[in-house]
């Protein structure tokens, strides 16, 4: 297993139980490409995406909407297949609906007729003895703070609770790679902050490789070891590739108001084409201030 960067290793080993640590897998993308067929003709989305994520690392993927972030994530999960290039999990190619991965989708996607506990149980690998499965579900529900709501149906709980159940379901798989597709995007600002801390807690207690797609630059900087900026390499090009990779300084949990993060935030937002009016980056700064 390839060595993880220092921050990730530290987080990963604090309260890890060995069985869990063994499952974290590195992810490698080599020249991944994807073109969608549309009525208006083929539309290239991804081209030549190279990325290497160490086992236990948290990597956030940001990029303008429609740039193929989610497609990339779905490919790592085996929900979609690249037209070109290779994706390896722990050195082996991704299989369709790869069992080594677990996805928490943008929407909770819970089965409305099942209780939260039974929804989480869906994530428990098949073949797990019933008693063990029940115990695992109870532990995960406790971990995400839903122990008291185990018997409720998805429509009886708030969006944040449903999203936590969805996270617990993903964790129940004991995934080598946890894939999060804008999991907190639809939540209110306060719940989102709580969920981010919950994710860090979960990652500390059950280390796994995390690939997080988000449109929230601050979220990326708060959670990730590295932030990958996707976008077109040349102006006007339709397809997306890795434009830059930013290593986030500081150990988690980080100070949300860290000045270094503010710098990176401005840099990333610039990369996303959003003017930030940050003194160090705003070209007009010396005029306006």
């Amino acid at each position: 297993m390839s060595p993880a960067p220092s921050t990730a290793t530290r987080t990963a080993t604090t309260t890890a139980d060995p069985a869990d640590a063994a499952t974290a897998r590195p992810v490698e993308l080599h020249g991944v490409a994807r073109t969608f067929a549309t009525p208006a003709g083929p539309r290239p989305v991804l081209a030549g995406v190279d990325l290497s994520v160490a086992a236990g690392e948290i990597v956030a993927v940001v990029g303008p909407s429609g740039c193929g972030k989610s497609t990339l994530l779905r490919q790592v999960a085996g929900l979609d297949a690249p037209d070109g290039g290779r994706i390896l999990l722990g050195g082996e190619p991704v299989a369709p609906y790869d069992a080594r991965t677990a996805v928490a989708f943008q929407e909770p996607r819970l089965l409305p007729w099942r209780t939260l506990a039974h929804n989480v149980a869906l994530g428990v690998p098949r073949g797990t003895p019933r008693a063990e499965s029940r115990e695992q579900v109870a532990r995960l529900l406790d971990l995400v703070g839903l122990a008291g709501s185990a018997g409720l149906r998805p429509r009886q709980v708030s969006g944040g609770m449903a999203q936590r159940a969805s996270l617990a379901r993903a964790l129940a798989r004991r995934p080598g790679v946890l894939l999060l597709d804008e999991p907190f995007g639809a939540l209110d600002a306060l719940t989102r902050l709580r969920m981010q801390d919950l994710l860090l807690e979960v990652h500390a207690s059950r280390p796994t490789t995390v690939l997080l797609v988000t449109h929230d630059v601050e979220e990326a900087l708060y959670l990730a070891d590295r932030v990958v900026l996707l976008g077109s390499l040349t102006a006007g090009a339709a397809d997306t590739s890795v434009r830059s990779v930013v290593t986030v300084p500081g150990d988690r949990p980080r100070d949300r108001a860290d000045a270094r993060l503010a710098e990176l935030r401005a840099e990333l937002l610039d990369g996303l084409g959003v003017p930030t009016h940050h003194p160090a980056h705003d070209p007009d700064a010396h005029h306006s201030i």
């Binding site: 929900l79 609906y97 929407e107 996607r109």
Partner: peptide, 12 residues
């Protein structure tokens, strides 16, 4: 289709 995909993603 979202639910079906989630089901497949969880090995069903």
């Amino acid at each position: 289709a979202h639910l079906v995909e989630a089901g497949r993603a969880y090995g069903l």
